[in-house]
Every structure is written in C-alpha cells, then in structure tokens.
Design a protein around this nucleic acid. Structure first.
Length: 429
RNA sequence: GUGGGCGUAGCUCAGUUGGUUAGAGCGCUAGGUUGUGGUCCUAGAGGUCGCGGGUUCGAUCCCCGUCGCUCACCCCA
C-alpha cells in the first residue's frame, strides 16, 4: 500500500492563472503587445536569471531589493546567479552585449521575483509589462514612453489614475544635493525612525519615500532635489512636462517621488491608482537611467523605460469595476458534436481548423445531450452535428446556438459544403 | 523579518455549547426527453472538517505546534 501523498501547492507568494482569469491575462498582454507595436517597439526576451552582478550594479547594492529580496543561487558550475527582480537591468545588459542600432526600442513581458512576504497586490513572483529605449536622451522619448503607458492604461479601461513625475538630477547636480540632504538628515537623525538610523547615511534618498510622520516632517524641512537641479536637468524636465501637457496628459510634480532602484537619473515617474484602498497603489513606474549602461560595463548610453505589474493592473481594473468586458474574445466559432462512434469529428474538426475557425469537440463518446451542453458552455456560435443520420446521408446539421429559435434555423448541408456554409453564417453576423 | 485574522466538498459558505452515517447553494455526472444545449424536475458522485501532536471514554470543535491563505508594517509592480 502506498502512503497518501500530500498534494503539492504552488510556492508561497506565487499563483496559477487559469479559468476566467486566463483570458484577462491573455487580453492584457495582447493589448500591450499591440500598443508596443503601434509605438514602434520590438519584443526582447532575456533570461530569467542573470549574473547577480547585473542587478547589484544596476539597482544598487544598498537597495532593499538587492540586500534582502533577491533570489540568489549558485549553480552547479559555482556561478552566482539571481532570478530577475525587475525588467530593466537585463535588457540593458542585452543592449550592451549586442550593440543594436540606436535608438533601440524594446518591450517585454516577464515574471519578476522578489523574496518578501506576500500581501494584497504583492507576490514573490509577479509579472511585468514594460518598454525600454536605449541610446537617446531626447526628452521627446520620455514623453513617448510615458504616453505609451498612459494610453495603454486608458485602453484597458482604467480611469482613476494619476501620473506623478519628478527629476532625479544627473551626475552634475545629484551628488551635490545628496550631500546637502545627508547633512540635513545628520542634524535631525534623532527624529527619524529606528529602521532609518542606518539608512539615512547610506541611501539618504530612500528617506523621501518614508510615510512616517516624523520622517516626512524632517525631510520636508530639508532641501528638495527639484530646487538643486542643474540647468540641463531643469530644461529636460520642462520639456517632458510640456510635451505631456501638449498630448493632454496631466502630470503632477512630486518632489518627494523617488523609486526603489538607484539607477534612475532625471525623469522619474509613477502611475498611482486612486481606486485602491490598499497600500499597493502603484500600477507602474519608471524613469531615465542615463548612467546604467556604463555601470554595467557598457559605453555611456542614455536610457529610459517603464514597467507595469500585470497583477496590479488586473486588480485595479476590478476595483474600478471596468465594464468594458473581456479584453479578448475567446469564444469558439464552432463546436462539433459527433455521435457516430466513428472518427467523423476528428476529420471535420481538422478541416474546420485548417480553414481558420476556432473549433472544439467533445470526447469520450458522450450522449448528444451531454455534448450539446458542453457546446453551449464553450460559447461557440454554431454547433455542427454529425449523427448516424447525417453520416449516412453525407450531411452535417448546423445549429445556431445563439439564436432564440434554433429549432427553426437548424438546417443540414452536404458534408463537402460545410466550410463554405459556416463561413457564410459567421461572416454575415 | 514583525504583527493580526482565517483554514469544513471543485467554488462560495453553514454547522457542531466536544457525542452515532458532517450539510446547503453553485458546479459536475446521469436520467426525465431511446438524436438536440440555455428553463424545470429527480437521482448520484465528490470530504482523512489543512497537517501533526496533546487533553478526553470520545476531537472537525478545546490546547500546542506546523504548513498554507489573507491583511497590515517594511518595501515595491
């Protein structure tokens, strides 16, 4: 006797997508792919894991993600790899490795892994849609990337979201500001929360992201980067906000906006949803990373991108009660019912599928009634019946499953005319 | 990493102040209709009451542990 085996479950913080959710996912990804194509982006696929250095040098060794959230492992060849915690660094690594002509516009859809306790809208494996543009620092590209995100959100039915924007400065002005901020924090360190006692000197910008009232008070009283931008950075930011404005896209300057990765320079942005009560209200974000390629060993190359969480988008869609329906039609055209006990369905289904119709069938020799039920649930427009009578006569019965008076509209056609006949019915509706 | 809530059928949930065979709705299967779905009726299948240990004559219920889910902190998509 074998012992009962406890069934395996998906690992903590991960989830399977199937059933009703799967069409939403497929629709979300297909819609994004369509927008990316429309905006001139091509798909890029990079490995799920990289040398851990790609992320350490990219997102910053002191960042939360690098220090305690990455899935780092050693392979059998003693190489230290990390599962990708985000989408940008690997794409930039690929850019450096292959030197495509610039501007290089790439889009991606990928899982991202972070070891953290799951909660609403936060998982150990989540999925991101995003784009990157390498090789130009034209503020018009910033506008294009942000506009792509904005138009995409609109297309999937979101309405209650805001665009927050800020500038992180560049090599010229950011360093000087960080020193000033550090000095300010040093003078008020006693007012910061315990967990920030180590953070403020190592990564002072992180403090701007804190929601603790005392921290907010301290940083609000201190210097703001927006006031210390060099002339070039200031002009760049002005170009971006003006460009967005000309497209009718409102942006809200948020001088406190900083993001979780160290690689950002100049334009930084985040889309937040007002439809969510929860703490996880960011549906996407990104920014410019003009120093990243160099940090990863490449030639100095400007870059900008954004990423958006699929789980978050679907969550917000639900929270907003989007009524536009499924993003993707996934009902079948045809369902073949075969009660001959022979291989009539096998041949008919193959012919119909080759002709381009979405077609399915039942198995296991079930009764006509049972097969009809399955046909109905499949969402198919037409049922094609082949019973002994049709088989003998060389015919197929076409039944409109979406008609109120299907008895009247049911008719038989010659077996050889089926493709033509269903084509007529399906194109005129 | 820290803290709260919750684990009963595929799903959503009742229930037992500890006591024989644990329930409903939906879903699924079959029949009513010997070749016809969406309505209706009938029947059936499906549960080690998350798992392990303890207390007890007896535990799905009480206690402890554990695993998982969930929410919040932190952080982020």
């Amino acid at each position: 006797m074998s012992d009962a085996v406890t069934p395996f479950q998906a690992p903590i913080g991960t989830h399977d997508v199937l059933g009703a959710a799967s069409a939403e996912w497929e629709g979300m990804i297909a819609t994004f792919a369509q927008f990316a194509y429309r905006f001139g982006f091509a798909l890029v696929i990079t490995p799920m894991f990289e040398d851990v250095g790609v992320f350490h040098r990219g997102i910053g060794e002191e960042s939360e993600i690098a220090t305690k959230e990455m899935y780092v492992f050693t392979d059998r060849g003693n190489r230290t790899h990390a599962l990708r915690p985000e989408g940008t660094a690997p794409v930039v690594r690929a850019f450096i490795q292959h030197s495509p002509t610039t501007p290089w516009k790439a889009w991606y859809v990928t899982p991202a892994f972070r070891y953290e306790r799951p909660q609403k809208g936060r998982y150990r494996q989540h999925h991101q849609l995003g784009v990157e543009v390498l090789g130009t620092d034209d503020p018009a590209v910033d506008v294009e990337v942000i506009a792509l995100a904005h138009r995409f959100y609109e297309a999937v039915g979101l309405t209650k979201f805001r665009l927050l924007i800020n500038s992180m400065g560049d090599a010229v002005c950011r360093g000087a500001y960080v020193e000033r901020l550090r000095d300010h924090l040093a003078a008020h360190a006693d007012q910061l929360t315990d967990e920030h006692q180590l953070t403020w000197s190592k990564n002072p910008l992180r403090l701007l992201d804190c929601k603790d009232a005392n921290c907010v008070a301290v940083t609000n009283a201190g210097p703001m980067l927006i006031d210390f931008l060099c002339a070039d950075c200031r002009e760049h930011l002005n170009h971006v906000t003006a460009g967005l404005s000309s497209l009718g896209i409102a942006s809200h300057l948020d001088p406190r906006l900083v993001r979780g990765f160290d690689y950002y320079t100049r334009t930084t942005f985040e889309f937040v949803s007002d439809a969510l009560e929860s703490a996880q209200n960011a549906i996407g974000g990104g920014g410019r990373y003009d120093g990243l390629a160099e940090q990863l060993g490449g030639k100095p190359t400007s870059g900008i991108g954004f990423g958006s969480g699929i789980e978050r988008l679907l969550m917000v869609r639900e929270a907003e009660g989007v009524t536009m329906g499924s993003l993707l039609k996934r009902d079948l055209d045809l369902f073949v019912i075969d009660t001959t006990g022979l291989d009539a369905a096998t041949l008919l289904v193959d012919e119909l599928r080759r002709a381009g119709f979405a077609t399915d069938r039942a198995f296991d020799q079930r009764s006509m009634k049972a097969q009809m039920k399955v046909a109905d649930k499949s969402g198919a427009r037409l049922a094609l019946l082949v019973g002994p009578r049709e088989f003998e006569a060389g015919e197929v019965t076409i039944r409109d499953l979406r008609s109120d008076n299907f008895e009247q509209t049911q008719r038989s056609v010659a077996r050889d005319d089926v493709v033509f006949a269903v084509g007529q019915v399906l194109t005129k509706s």
